[in-house]
């Protein structure tokens, strides 16, 4: 009986002895799956953590959800890629200021035999219009993410009314990777950021068909969540991370990151300081 009680006590004690990591300095960064999945954070963070002894905890979700998390005060820093939403976030008082960090681009991928015939086009909107006309299957994120928002803007520019779209238009309602898995499974076209694409392994028949249009430019911004609005925000540590990202060390690290032998992100903090 006594042995049993002791065992129970020990179990209870063990369960309550949670990882001690919470004791050190850390910040929570709400970011997107594209940065996490591409492996960029894994490459960047050790240098920063070693220099500052601040642990960076990345919660990678869609841009829409990341902004929502930050709006609830559940993150210290927001690093996403949808400029209008980011500006609204700052304007509504949730963030201190928006700074541009880096960019990459979106690409249109699709089956190699390209039944819609868009391969090599340089006008993304025109390619999208042709896709709609051909009625070939297209897998959309449908999750209010940065990529989804960009895709919708392209459809609009192409003059395609998605309300009228037939069953060729499939909304997966999930992240970039899951959507690419779906596209790969049913040989559908899809819009993806280059980082996720480069790290994506289950490509099947899919390949890049359209790239290089200015419309496909994908800018990442970073924002410190407002310490005025949320007093618990780790202001100094968060700012240190942003300063590092925008500074020489961070920018050089971003440029140096290679994914499958290709540069995945292009630093542009200095070129275009935020107003």
């Amino acid at each position: 009986m006594i042995a049993r009680r002791a065992l129970l006590g020990a179990l209870l004690a063990a369960s309550l002895a949670l990882p001690a990591a919470a004791a050190g300095k850390f910040i929570t960064v709400a970011s997107t799956t594209s940065t996490e999945n591409s492996g960029l954070f894994k490459a960047l963070l050790p240098a920063f953590e070693q220099k500052t002894e601040i642990e960076v905890r990345v919660v990678a979700v869609g841009t829409g959800q990341a902004i929502k998390l930050a709006q609830n005060g559940d993150a210290d820093v927001l690093l996403v890629h949808h400029k209008p939403s980011e500006e609204a976030f700052v304007a509504e008082g949730y963030g201190v200021e928006r700074r541009e960090v880096m960019y990459n681009d979106y690409v249109l991928v699709g089956p190699g035999d390209d039944p819609a015939g868009i391969a090599g086009m340089t006008d993304a909107a025109a390619a999208m219009a042709r896709l709609a006309a051909a009625g070939e299957p297209f897998a959309s994120r449908g999750d209010d993410s940065g990529t989804h928002k960009r895709e919708q803007a392209l459809w609009k520019e192409a003059g395609v009314d998605l309300e009228q779209a037939g069953d060729w238009y499939r909304e997966t309602g999930s992240g970039m990777g899951a959507t690419l898995n779906t596209a790969s499974g049913m040989n559908a076209y899809a819009l993806t950021d280059r980082g996720t694409w480069l790290s994506f392994k289950n490509r099947g028949e899919l390949e890049i068909l359209v790239e290089g249009d200015a419309q496909l430019f994908n800018q990442y911004g970073v924002i410190l969540v407002s310490p005025e609005r949320f007093p618990h925000v780790r202001k100094d540590e968060g700012q240190a991370f942003i300063d590092w990202l925008l500074g020489e060390d961070g920018q050089r690290a971003i440029a140096a990151y290679r994914l499958e032998g290709e540069q995945a992100f292009f630093p542009n903090a200095a070129r275009k300081p935020a107003s």
Binding site: P19, A21, T28, T33, E36, N37, K42, R57, V58, V59, A60, G175, M176, G177, A178, L180, N181, S184, S199, F200, K201, N202, R203
Partner: peptide, 23 residues
């Protein structure tokens, strides 16, 4: 939040690798 090294468990790791297409 599936934070690497902090809150990543087996199932969230599986979800992550799936989303990377590393089936």
């Amino acid at each position: 939040g599936n934070i690497a090294g902090v809150t990543r468990v087996m199932t969230t790791a599986i979800a992550l690798e799936t989303s990377k297409g590393d089936l």
